[in-house]
Amino acid sequence: MKHGQTKSYVIGFILSLIFTLVPYYLVQHKVAVGRNLLVAILGLAVVQLIIQVVYFLHLGRKPTPRWEIGFLLSTISIILVVTAGSLVIIHNLHSNMSIPDQEKTLVNSEAIYQVNGKLTGACQMIRANHQVIIKNNTASPRYVSADKCDTLTFVNQDSQRHTITFGTHTTHSSYAGVSEFELRQGKPETITLSETGGFNYHDHQRPSIAGSFLVLYNGQGQ
């Protein structure tokens, strides 16, 4: 019994060493990147938590009180609610409340082309219209070239919804104050091309649906 206790500490120590060195190795040698790596090292940390709870704290070894485990589990559930909740809320807040983005959305939707005598970059008059048709999980044409203040319409001909967002997959950005929009069948979405430059867009759920558009400044429209 008493010999067994020492043994449990030794086992716990060796396992904890392994579960410390493996994530360190993963990060040091960049075995994976970004989200995958983060999930992997967090998973390993949780395994090490369980190892230490079992081998160091000896929780659940005694046949009698289960209160400690119950209290631990309820604490963990509170922690999950608090941390996951804060992260989700702040993430949403961040993507919806970014001030330049908000201003741009407002300026574009209301077509305010100048504020206090300064041009906002919004278009005063709309020019040509371009179309991108998404069908069978491909966008066509994949490349659109347009002038500033033209409009670009996305049409969904698939039965499922698409969530279109800008930038390439994993590095999301926004275009003219729009960060993403939902595209249903028969409900096209039109954006005003008020920012010049080259831009990418893609479907958030199916990154294979992707394309790009180039907006050139032509000195007119404003």
């Binding site: 410390t20 994530p23 360190y24 990060v27 040091q28 990147v33 970004g34 790596l37 983060l38 090292i41 967090l42 390993l44 940390a45 090490q48 938590l49 230490q52 709870v53 160091f56 704290l57």
Partner: peptide
Amino acid sequence: WHFLDIVWIFIFTIVYLGAFA
């Protein structure tokens, strides 16, 4: 003491390793 080590595992993972992930 064991509890503090467990908290540290998460500091090590989230703060230090997480910064390089």
